[in-house]
């Protein structure tokens, strides 16, 4: 061992590993807690916990599954303190959803690969709304104010856009399979 070899805790190495896994960690959290603001809190708690325990990380094993286990743990802890989410996921539904999501994953990966193309097909106004909500993380109130519409109308529009996108990825995939 010498001073030039990597040794935990090593911030740059941790950042590289975490950034490579960040998307999967976020997806893991969002699958259980889809609310963006809440999921963000959990991801941050997960990141802090991962850094704190980074010295225990076994380099012989892949980082992403290790990180996702932390994410699942912190998601569960977060859910334990939220009555509404408990009501949604109680009686074993959380476990059922997790298992079913794993089963659906290959198909999801295949179909959702078309998502970018489907977003491109959205009318300009809808694309702007999706960008504002998901990319810029602008609040619904601000989006409504920018559009001169009501908060209710923005929620409704987002709901319709998501359903249209889901329909699009299904159709696109079906067409590709037929082709």
């Amino acid at each position: 061992m010498n001073p030039n070899s990597p040794s935990p805790p090593d911030q740059p190495r941790f950042l590289r590993l975490f950034l490579a896994s960040e998307r999967e960690v976020r997806r893991t959290v969002l699958a259980m807690v889809p609310s963006l603001a809440d999921a963000e809190d959990i991801v941050q708690q997960t990141a802090a916990a991962l850094w704190e325990k980074f010295a225990e990380y076994d380099e012989a094993r892949p980082f992403t599954p290790w990180a996702c286990r932390f994410a699942q743990h912190h998601t569960r802890r977060w859910l334990e303190r939220r009555a509404i989410w408990q009501r949604l996921l109680e009686h074993g539904l959380a476990e059922e959803l997790t298992q079913r999501r794993e089963a659906l994953r290959p198909e999801m990966e295949r179909r959702l690969a078309a998502l970018e193309k489907c977003v491109e097909k959205l009318p300009e106004e809808q694309r702007r709304l999706v960008t504002g909500y998901y990319y810029d993380r602008t609040g619904i109130g601000a989006l409504a104010a920018a559009q001169g519409g009501s908060v209710e109308a923005v929620y409704k529009m987002l709901q319709r856009i998501r359903q249209a996108l889901l329909e699009c990825v299904r159709t696109t995939t079906a067409q590709e399979v037929e082709a």
Partner: peptide, 13 residues
């Protein structure tokens, strides 16, 4: 699950 996954993809990606 499909709808939540699509929402998560939009947020994560």
């Amino acid at each position: 699950l499909w709808r939540v996954e699509l929402h998560a993809r939009l947020a994560c990606d």
